[in-house]
């Protein structure tokens, strides 16, 4: 459904962040992208959405057979891809209702019925409909961010670290929501710090290091991989034949 081929991208001409990334999100699946801080995960999503001017400098992005490379963000969004940005991207001074409606900017006809669906999925947003988004808790903001993305009735949803900074109860709620959105037929690309949970729900996973995909496989395969266990799942066994590029940077959980 979504296919990235040899993507090279960065923010300035002199620097490169993605050094030839290829990956695929099949229809109806959950694909997760893991990687240390600064590996280029968010940059990958921004490149897909066409948010960085004149990027990618090499490679192509195709979605349902159509090329998205160098199209403007508006038409990429309209083709059925929605982004839940890193840090939730709230319009803080706008109400929850206004935030949600902005997600349906090009879908006026279906906005009301989609809104009802979203409020049914996240009932606590109903009570807070007229509250400024900036005054919500982190977990509630994440629900607004996901709900807002759903307002455009996307075929593919890109989530950038949706569980970051949330209490365990909310983390579980977010993962449940992702699973149920996917069960309704929406394909998912998930970036997560919580590798354990991400690998549990993902059909397929990629590991990104320094702008390159260094490992890929099904969720189950990666859960059993020694490097992943050590670096991303925080298990203590140290393999002596570790891949050189893998560096211990940070442990999750």
């Amino acid at each position: 459904m979504l296919k990235l081929e040899n993507i090279e991208a960065g923010y300035t001409r002199q620097t490169i962040v993605l050094r030839g990334v290829s990956l695929e999100v099949p229809q109806g699946k959950i694909v997760t992208l893991l990687g240390a801080n600064g590996a280029g995960k968010s940059t990958t999503l921004k490149t897909i959405m066409g948010l960085i001017d004149d990027e990618p400098r090499k490679g192509s992005v195709t979605f349902q057979g159509n090329t998205l490379t160098h199209k403007d963000t508006e038409s990429i969004a309209r083709s059925g891809i929605a982004l839940v940005p890193e840090g939730r991207g709230m319009f803080k001074d706008l109400t929850v209702f206004e935030n949600l409606m902005l997600g349906a900017y090009h879908h006026t006809a279906t906005a009301q019925s989609t809104l009802q669906d979203v409020l049914k999925r996240f009932p606590r947003l109903e009570e807070r409909k007229n509250q400024h988004a900036g005054t919500l808790s982190g977990g509630e903001q994440q629900m607004v961010a996901i709900g807002r993305a759903l307002m455009s009735r996307p075929k593919l949803i890109l989530l950038d670290e949706p569980s970051l900074g949330l209490a365990p109860k909310f983390v579980q709620e977010v993962f449940n929501a992702i699973a149920s959105i996917n069960a309704e037929g929406v394909s998912v690309m998930l970036i997560e710090q919580n590798a354990k949970k991400a690998l549990e729900i993902a059909d397929y996973a990629y590991v990104l290091e320094h702008g390159r995909i260094v490992l890929e496989g099904t969720g189950a395969e990666l859960r059993e991989n020694e490097n992943v266990k050590e670096l991303y799942l925080g298990m203590t066994h140290v393999p002596d034949s570790g891949v050189g590029r893998f560096r211990r940077k940070r442990r999750w959980n």
Partner: peptide, 18 residues
């Protein structure tokens, strides 16, 4: 509404297809 969104966070507004 779109103006207020753009004034608060242009990148997110853009990503939403506004």
């Amino acid at each position: 509404l779109a103006m207020r969104a753009v004034s608060q966070n242009p990148e997110v507004a853009k990503a939403l297809g506004i």
